[in-house]
Design a protein around this nucleic acid. Structure first.
Lengths: 118, 118
DNA sequence: GTTGTTCATGCTCTTGCGGTTATATAGCCG
DNA sequence: CGGCTATATAACCGCAAGAGCATGAACAAC
């Protein structure tokens, strides 16, 4: 029972695994994309990602511990639903870069390069 | 032996994988953050990330192969500069999620939940 | 109860990452 | 030339991630 508590604490600890690492796996990105429409059962997700059911469950665990999905038990089945909040961290990291790949950036860069030459 | 070659090719293949995988490592994110200001030498980056010089070079290789940085040789030194274009892929993936963590989303969700109850 | 279904967990195996040290390569300087 | 500096590559190691398979746990249905 105490052991149970500890493993739960370890789980919470792993929660601090950043969303960047979570999104590194394409299967997990695919799962999130599917959950964007509506909550889904593990069986659905398993079929969609083309992995074994245990494999899918493992990815779902990672997503859960990162706070990217929540589970709603329904009898023997489990509805997984998206919880997008942790994605905000990625969005924030991306923010100072976002302006850079626009055409205006190219123009500005050329301008600055020209000034450097002078 | 041929097998070994194939596995090596697979390695390189994975190395040049998606920007998601590249950003999974905090050292690489840190490098990109530093390059946002200006191009930098390997030595600078090594000191900043607190890794060994070869370790830093390895991360730089990954970033290079993902197209996130370019190198400009200058004598025996190398200026690494940011090339943010590949980050657009992440930005695009994020797009359909971005509205979701706003307050308007919470309000809408509450509204929909209310409708479910009725 | 028994059987079937749905999902999670445990185990094992392999692979690849991220880190180190040692070495090679290339350019600078005296 | 020889020695110093800056960077890349090679060789190696530890470990965790990801996959499969087998099993367990919980619930449903009969």
């Amino acid at each position: 029972m105490l052991l149970r508590l500890y493993s739960r604490m370890a789980m919470l600890d792993v929660m601090s695994s950043t969303p960047f690492g979570v999104l590194a796996d394409p299967a997990r990105r695919r799962i999130l994309d599917l959950l964007r429409d509506r909550p889904r059962l593990v069986g659905e997700l398993t079929a969609a990602v083309g992995l074994s059911q245990p494999g899918t469950s493992k990815h779902l665990r990672v997503l859960r511990e990162a706070g990217l999905v929540t589970v709603r038990p329904d009898g023997q089945r489990r509805w997984y639903e998206l919880r997008p909040e942790p994605l905000a961290e990625i969005d924030e990291w991306l923010t100072p870069y976002r302006w850079m790949w626009s055409e205006r950036f190219d123009a500005l860069e050329r301008h600055l390069d020209t000034m450097d030459d002078a």
